[in-house]
């Protein structure tokens, strides 16, 4: 099975494996949604997927393009209003894990989806916070998945849209009634976890064929590596087959076929 999968597939499969069967997961659109549904279709059939559109325990046949595709409501156990979703289900503490993507992330897992540049004179205006600011603090813990690049992994995010651990790593200290925050970051090169003390991201596992230099080259700060660095297990043939089927039927559906 070596070499016949892409780095994107490696990322999705690894992100999917992070979800345990029976977890309740608040799912962001894009890569997190792909990973969460792969988990549901493989090792975690009873994972509960919740989307911010109000769809509770949904089992989409194809990946949604938007967070509110009809597919999500049609395959959900029930659909609630958006205020109820955020107030009762998320803020009320019913979500184990929030699964997020981002445009920028820094060493303390702070996420920027607001803009590049200065707020009043942005170079690039990004979509904004959406559900992320409260998902990141009201879910029990947070998984983050995105492609590894120097543009995304920056020393300082231009704007903290969503709290990781703050600019100094102490942003959650002493704040009552919030979750643990980010517990892992999964990219196409590696898996990172926050240092238990400093909260700085540390590489704990390299994907097969990826070197330390590859990660250093793609990270905008002096990235640290765990002493006992692991090698991420390869995707299985079954995981790849299910992922490719899912993506194929998704592409067909979104092309209007």
């Amino acid at each position: 099975m070596s070499n016949d999968y892409t780095s994107s597939e490696m990322m999705t499969v690894t992100a999917a494996r992070a979800l345990e069967n029976g977890m309740t997961c608040f799912v962001g659109i894009g890569l997190p949604s792909e990973a969460a549904n792969l988990a549901r279709l493989t090792h975690a059939p009873d994972v509960v997927l919740i989307y911010e559109s109000g769809t509770l325990q949904t089992k989409p046949e194809v990946l949604p393009l938007s967070i509110g595709d009809g597919e999500l409501a049609e395959t959900a156990l029930t659909t609630v209003a958006v205020p109820e979703m955020f107030r009762y289900w998320l803020q009320g503490g019913k979500v184990d894990v929030g699964f997020l993507g981002t445009a920028q992330i820094d060493r303390y897992c702070n996420l920027n989806t607001t803009l590049i540049g200065d707020y009043r004179e942005p170079k690039v205006r990004l979509p904004g916070g959406g559900g992320a600011p409260e998902i990141a603090t009201n879910a029990g813990e947070v998984f983050i998945t995105l492609k590894h690049s120097k543009r995304a992994f920056v020393d300082r995010v231009d704007f903290v849209t969503t709290l990781g651990f703050g600019r100094d790593g102490k942003g959650r200290d002493g704040v009552p009634n919030i979750g643990k925050g980010p517990t892992r970051v999964i990219t196409d090169l590696c898996v990172m976890k926050p240092d238990p003390e400093t909260k700085e991201l540390v590489v704990v596992s390299l994907h097969p064929g990826v070197s330390r230099e590859d990660v250093i080259e793609a990270t905008g700060w002096e990235i640290r590596f765990a002493e006992s660095l692991e090698s991420t297990p390869q995707p299985s043939a079954k995981e790849l087959e299910i992922l490719r089927d899912l993506k194929d039927r998704t592409d067909r559906k979104h092309a209007g076929q």
């Binding site: 911010e52 205020p83 955020f86 107030r87 409260e134 603090t137």
Partner: peptide
Amino acid sequence: SHAAMACAFEAGAAGLPLAVLRGYVGSEL
């Protein structure tokens, strides 16, 4: 954030002047 706006609509429907939420913790918004 979505949570804040959803709460703000709900508060508007409820005739209240404001919405309260456990939100924006650590955000620069």
